[in-house]
Design a protein around this nucleic acid. Structure first.
Lengths: 345, 345
DNA sequence: GCGTCTTTTTGGAGCGTTCCAAGTTTTTTC
DNA sequence: GAAAAAACTTGGAACGCTCCAAAAAGACGC
């Protein structure tokens, strides 16, 4: 493969001039420029090799996005939530003319991914086991971590506690007394069921966000003289298609199902159709996230919404701006649609 | 920032040995390894800088995906079709441990994107105006182009002609005689309406796929003694939310609407709801692509389906394998659901 | 202990570019 | 037509790494 220097030799000019022909043509006299271009054509040289540029400039013009938890990059296309997050990130990347690299990071390999990715900054979804923040720090690149707090680092998270609280209040106001909670399992594996009595207070390890939401649920239930300890809690990975079935099997008496993502709520809705259970007549369902998908289900989903696209965009902008660390908490809001109603008689 | 050489100096060993500690630790005696690791810790050196590695190895361990037509990378999250395509690509990337770079390419900048992207190969969605193939060739990297033919290059396309044909046959078999066609506009801009009589034979520039499909429609109509020249043809960009409205406004007598993507068909379905037109009682609608979304609409969409995820996966595998050029044509199949029925009396 | 074989370590070469201060040529001005 | 100013070109330095052939060190057998 010809290089800048080869072209220069043929055209009888220096490397620097050839470089200028491609990058700053206005600095080169036109006859020289033409000679260089002719030489380049003759050698089949099509402009500076990005590899050399990267070393010299030290920049990749790309940011990396790593999915949270046990997700692979393919899951970012499947999850309604992640899809909107990626949309927001890509909007900012489009504007900044920067490439978006979807970097994989299943568990152990996450840290090596961080070490080796060809990016100028990261957006990290949080992981349970791994010291992502430490790895990211060591790489000395700007980064934002989502749904996780931390001093002196960029983070964006939602107010999960309030979100959970308003969801429960909405349902208790409607008169519900029998709940089930569909919580998130953050590691790969089958659903975990915690029935009342048969469990410790603490639930399987999750993200900070998950504990917060559980707390919010507990507070809301307590306000209605109910205890979360009497509520079945089922944990599934977000895309688990069996989530709905497990809920109906293990909590048949619930009149209200609280979930931690729209994706899970959709699974519940699908299973309800399969079993001839009608929503909201027999059972009320509340989603979480407020994805576009939640507005298009049958019935449209009541959900705890936040601006996912805006979150993704903001995350990308923070990475790109590389300013001093900020911790941002995004507000949530209950969007009431048709999947919740008073319990029957 | 410390470098390999700095670490070597502190540990009293050569650069090569430090490199081995990080990349081939089994080649280094353990006491030396520990000394090097200590030196690295002391200097805050966290492993070889990927910039140097890229220059030396000449590989990026990434493939680039460029969206077709006037799409930006954000649109890949919006379009049901592209979303599945990206899913397929990312599945193959996950398996190969390769990063997926979403590279932008609005029109003129596409070729420079190809020149500069930090990837080992490309998957290109076709573009109308630009000589993508030429640029990709010059970069001398393996690439696949989608929905576009070409000698001596990798390409994957669907059999659009047959797809269009079976869609029309399905509708004429049901007894439909009044059609409208919702075609694709491949450049940015508002809908273009071609009414019978007021148009030339040729339609606005599109992809090869679009012409093929128009041909297939024409053939199918001719089989039923109908002429495509009597059919209103409306061209919209795929995500245009007004597509449905334009169709109903300009082709109010149609009992059957042929589209070129599920996304457009969904827009028609939405507009039908808004106007109180019921599908399939008042009007039949056929989608194209066979996305997962098409199975979840109300009513579920009859559509010309192909294996989009498989296509994306295959494209990535071809790029990764870098074998001799293949031209692949994928079969299509009519999936009959509930959006088509006999026309009313 | 000495030669032989094996395991480790070394340091030069090269990957292709861009920057920049210094040098050279061309143009302008009087 | 010479001096000054402007325009253009040059080539060394640096970016940080990995490979590899050769050198050095260590292990082993007798």
């Amino acid at each position: 493969m010809p290089t800048l220097a080869d072209v220069g030799k043929v055209a009888g000019v220096s490397r620097g001039t050839v470089s200028n022909v491609f990058n700053h043509p206005e600095l080169v006299r036109s006859d020289v420029r033409e000679r260089v271009e002719a030489a380049a054509r003759q050698l089949g040289y099509d402009g500076p090799d990005p590899r050399g540029r990267v070393l010299r400039d030290g920049k990749f013009n790309a940011i990396g996005l790593m999915p949270p938890g046990a997700y692979a990059i393919a899951d970012m296309m499947r999850s309604p939530y992640l899809r909107e997050l990626v949309l927001g990130v890509s909007l900012a990347c489009d504007e900044a003319g920067v490439t978006l690299s979807l970097v994989n990071g299943m568990d152990e390999s996450r840290t090596s991914t961080i070490r080796d990715a060809l990016v100028d900054g990261f957006i990290l979804g949080h992981s349970v086991d791994i010291d992502l923040v430490g790895s990211a720090r060591r790489r000395r690149l700007p980064f934002v971590i989502l749904e996780s707090a931390g001093q002196d680092i960029n983070s964006i998270r939602i107010d999960g506690r309030s979100g959970a609280l308003i969801a429960v209040r909405h349902l208790t106001d409607l008169g519900h007394r029998n709940f089930a909670i569909l919580s998130v399992r953050r590691t790969a594996g089958p659903p975990i069921v915690h029935m009342p009595g048969s469990r410790k207070h603490a639930i399987t390890a999750g993200f900070a966000l998950d504990y917060e939401r559980l707390e919010g649920f507990a507070t809301g239930l307590a306000e209605a003289q109910l205890s979360i300890d009497d509520v079945p809690i089922i944990e599934t990975i977000p895309g688990d298609p069996t989530a709905g079935a497990v809920v109906f099997d293990r909590a048949p008496d619930a009149t209200a199902i609280l979930t931690m993502s729209d994706w899970q709520a959709i699974s519940v809705l699908d299973e309800a159709v399969r079993r001839g259970i009608s929503v909201p007549e027999h059972v009320s369902v509340v989603g979480f996230d407020g994805t576009a998908a939640s507005a298009r289900t049958t019935p449209p989903l009541t959900t705890v919404a936040h601006d996912i696209v805006g979150k993704g965009r903001l995350a990308a902008e923070m990475v790109l701006a590389n300013a001093s660390p900020k911790q941002i908490v995004m507000p949530v809001e209950l969007v009431v649609r048709d999947s919740t109603a008073q319990p029957r008689g």
